[in-house]
């Protein structure tokens, strides 16, 4: 078998609906000098659809998926930006963190009401953003650190990250992962993966079992073959002059090496 087992149904290069991933659309964790920063997307930057319910679901997913990346009893600083949080929501966040042995200590906010709610609940409050977030976001932001997730991306779940996504688990039909970097799926890819979402066509999508509904790399789109897989190899999707192609992973590095 040659290195390129191609997708039969290649769709022409259509610009996919989503542009790159905005840094600030997702609930993120960031390690900073022995403490953990929990960063909520700013209210002004998210559409109205990014409600508390969405934020809450994302937070729970992050907490369920990444639990071995922090030590027990790590202190968490919540960067709530301009988001309005009431006492009950703050308490819910603190409880969710508590379930994985994280302790909420400090709240950064630019909203007076949130500050009051946080102070009432006994957290220390700062009415400005932490230093790490002060770097302005220009259009040429470097890729964020890889996002490591151990979970099933189930139907209706959408993971967006402005760097590379490493997923230990499956992307189920109806699930979607969008990354500005590469997407590595240590599992079965049956939903949609979009790598290089801000335009980098050198990005790759890798999966132990590649049965996607659709693959996108930068502006390229490919549909899955309609034929059933008979043998399963780890595979890598990449952009060639003919569009997106899928190669057996074991052959891919070799071919890249020879062609360079």
């Amino acid at each position: 078998m040659t290195s390129d087992s191609t997708l039969p149904d290649i769709v022409s290069s259509v610009a996919p609906p989503s542009g790159g991933v905005n840094h600030n659309l997702q609930v993120r964790f960031k390690n900073e000098e022995g403490k953990l920063l929990l960063i909520l997307p700013a209210e002004t930057e998210t559409s109205s659809s990014s409600s508390w319910a969405d934020i809450w679901q994302q937070l729970k997913q992050r907490l369920n998926a990444g639990d071995r990346f922090w030590q027990p009893n790590t202190t968490v600083h919540l960067a709530a930006a301009d988001r309005l949080l009431d006492g009950r929501q703050l308490q819910a966040v603190a409880e969710a963190l508590g379930e994985v042995q994280l302790t909420l200590k400090r709240v950064y906010t630019s909203r007076r009401q949130t500050a009051v709610a946080a102070a009432t609940a006994g957290y220390s409050v700062e009415q400005q953003t932490p230093s790490a977030l002060n770097q302005p976001l220009t259009s040429s932001v470097p890729l964020a650190e890889p996002l490591y997730l151990q979970m099933a991306v189930r139907s209706g779940v959408e993971i967006r990250h402005s760097g590379t996504v490493i997923l230990v688990g499956d992307i189920n039909p109806g699930g979607i992962v969008v990354a500005n970097g590469d997407i590595l799926v240590w599992g079965r890819l049956r939903g949609i993966a979009h790598a290089g979402a801000d335009g980098n066509s050198k990005c790759l999508i890798m999966a132990l079992q590649m049965e996607p509904t659709q693959l996108r790399i930068a502006d390229y789109v490919a549909r899955a073959p309609t034929t059933q897989l008979t043998q399963v190899y780890p595979e890598i999707a990449h952009v060639t002059p003919e569009g997106i192609r899928i190669s057996i992973a074991a052959d891919f590095s070799k071919s890249q090496f020879l062609s360079s």
Binding site: W56, Q57, K60, Q61, N64, E99, A152, R154, S155, G156, V157, N172, P173, G174, G175
Partner: peptide, 18 residues
């Protein structure tokens, strides 16, 4: 397929609810 897809969605929501 449609029922399983919806079930999958619901499993995700239940997990998020703890």
């Amino acid at each position: 397929i449609a029922a399983v897809r919806d079930a999958d969605r619901v499993v995700g929501l239940l997990e998020a609810e703890g």
